[in-house]
Amino acid sequence: MKRIFLILGVLTAILLSYALYMALVIAPTERTMGNVQRIFYYHVPSAWTAFILFFVNFGASIFYLIKRNPAADIVALVSAEVGVVFCTVVLVTGPIWARPVWGIWWTWDMRLTSTLVLWLIYVSYLFLRRFSSSGETPLLAASLAVLGALCVPFVYFSIWFFRTQHPQPVMGGGGSIDPRMLHVLLINWLAFSCFAFLVCWSRYRLEKLQRDVDHAHVLQSLLAPRGSVR
């Protein structure tokens, strides 16, 4: 298993380097925005990856609510955590692109605001998981995750239903893109998806190990002779 992880890690590193090269060198320069448009090759794949991870969190939470499966609970936690990391990238790279293009860092338009709300929902989910010690925490978190997932399609389709400053979607909607740019975008998305998968894998193993250790601590304190428990 360790060997497979290592091989996948090396392949992902190569893919990420190739995707970076494609984004900076091969992709054509956009006529009006110039080089700043290349931020799009990190911003959009990060958003797509975050959305996929939030849907994985949704699926795992539903599964946990039905079956009370601990592995599903771990998958839900891990996908939310890595999803928040990718969503943070989206919220940071967006304003860096907006400053030179729109002249402002931020505007309270529907796409930007709903993305921020989505991020806050999942951050509150992680806070709940981190600081609540109740036995019902996974159940409460799974319910919150279901609500959070309902927000994802709203964020995606907000630029269809509301007048916003945000550019139109690349896939579907009214947006159009040069095929060479689309090619670079998809390679970056593939690279970030592989990276997200590996991070989730390693975080899953860590969480599972943490739970085993916590269980061992409980057993140790139960088996310890009276008065010797610290």
């Binding site: 970076l20 320069t29 009006t32 925005m33 110039g34 080089n35 700043v36 290349r38 931020i39 990190y42 911003h43 990060s46 990238v89 940071v92 790279t93 860096i96 692109w97 400053r99 030179p100 293009v101």
Partner: peptide, 16 residues
Amino acid sequence: MSGNIRYLFAAYAVTW
């Protein structure tokens, strides 16, 4: 607009 390469660098650096 094309001279705004520092924004591109900042976005990529912050991501990593």
